[in-house]
Simulated scan of single mutants.
Amino acid sequence: MEAGSVVVSYVSSPIATWSCLVVLLSIHLAMNHAAVRAVSLHSLNRQRANIVMSNLLVNNRVMTPDEVSSQERIFEWDGVLRWRGSLPFAKARIGVTLHCLLKTLAPAHVVTGAICDGDLILERLVEVYRHEDFLVWYDSPKTTAYVVLKDQASAKAQLKAWALALWGAHRFETQYSIGANTDDLLRLLETTLSDISNQWDDSIERLRAAGWDIGIANLETSSGSRVRVGAESLQVIGERKK
């Protein structure tokens, strides 16, 4: 009791009380930070996918979960795109509705809200991704990539879509600093898709060998939408909420 009374006497003033509180909170946060750093997760969320895929695409090297864990940020902006841990250069949204995509393809009428020319670009976009389970578009003025997932999109397909959004946005910001038209963007997305597809199966096997669990769909942070696309007409024939 006597020792306890001595301790209490040192923290009886407001300054001493707040000083002790700050010190204890700092120790608590430091220990939590160290504990989080020690955890090595084997699923690819958005931040880990940015780190892994950018290094794979530029260095042809697959980082292990332990290596990625040392580079992860404890707090990260949702959907931000970083190239090899650099400053954010764009954003990405995955599992968006078709209407959301259409609004980025063409401006809506100021009175009716109708989207007049977006369907023409959409038809070309669907043609580019006719063999994929997703659509990807990059809105350069907003520096935002939009990913629409088709009804059968697997975790593997979602990762490929995110890799395409990441690399496509990076290429666009690097090659078209003064802007580009729709044809330029479609060609860039088509080229990026071809480059990724040529090495995708091998990349997936290398990711698995490095310890990553590709079967976990961890890129959507909220309930997303899915679309069904007609094989012959290349038109969207349905949409549902995931």
Rank of each mutant, 00 (worst) to 15 (best):
C116Y: 13
Y138P: 00
S177Y: 09
N218E: 12
E2K: 09
L24E: 12
I237W: 01
A30M: 02
D78H: 14
D213C: 06
S154Y: 00
L135H: 06
W162H: 11
G230R: 00
F75Q: 13
L149K: 07
G224V: 06
A106C: 08
Y146E: 01
A153L: 01
W77C: 06
S13V: 10
Y146P: 00
L234C: 03
N32K: 12
S86C: 06
K241F: 13
A180L: 12
D139A: 14
Q47C: 07
I121W: 11
R208W: 01
I94C: 05
R46H: 13
V52K: 08
V8A: 14
H131I: 08
R82D: 00
H33I: 00
A49L: 14
E239H: 09
L164V: 10
A209P: 10
E72N: 07
V6M: 10
M31I: 06
T174Q: 09
T221V: 08
E232S: 13
D183N: 11
T112L: 01
F134N: 04
A3S: 06
H33N: 08
A16C: 14
L81I: 01
G95V: 08
V96Q: 12
I237E: 14
A34F: 01
F75V: 13
V111F: 02
H28Y: 02
N55P: 06
V148T: 07
S222H: 03
G79V: 09
D119K: 00
A231H: 08
V80C: 03
M31D: 04
A163V: 05
G168I: 07
L122K: 05
I178A: 14
S13G: 14
K160W: 04
V96T: 09
T97Y: 05
P88D: 03
R206I: 15
L98H: 07
V22G: 15
A114M: 02
M53V: 13
L25N: 03
D195L: 12
E123A: 10
F75E: 04
L57V: 10
Q152Y: 03
L159M: 15
V11E: 09
D202K: 15
S70C: 04
A92N: 05
W212Y: 13
A157G: 09
L186S: 02
Y129C: 07
A163G: 08
A180S: 15
V96P: 08
V136H: 02
I196N: 10
V39P: 00
T143M: 12
A114P: 00
D184V: 05
S197W: 04
E67M: 11
G179H: 01
G211F: 04
R171H: 10
R46K: 15
T191A: 13
G224S: 15
P88T: 02
V68A: 05
V236K: 01
A3R: 08
L185K: 15
A34L: 08
I214H: 09
R84W: 02
A3D: 07
Y146M: 03
A30T: 14
V148M: 07
Q47M: 04
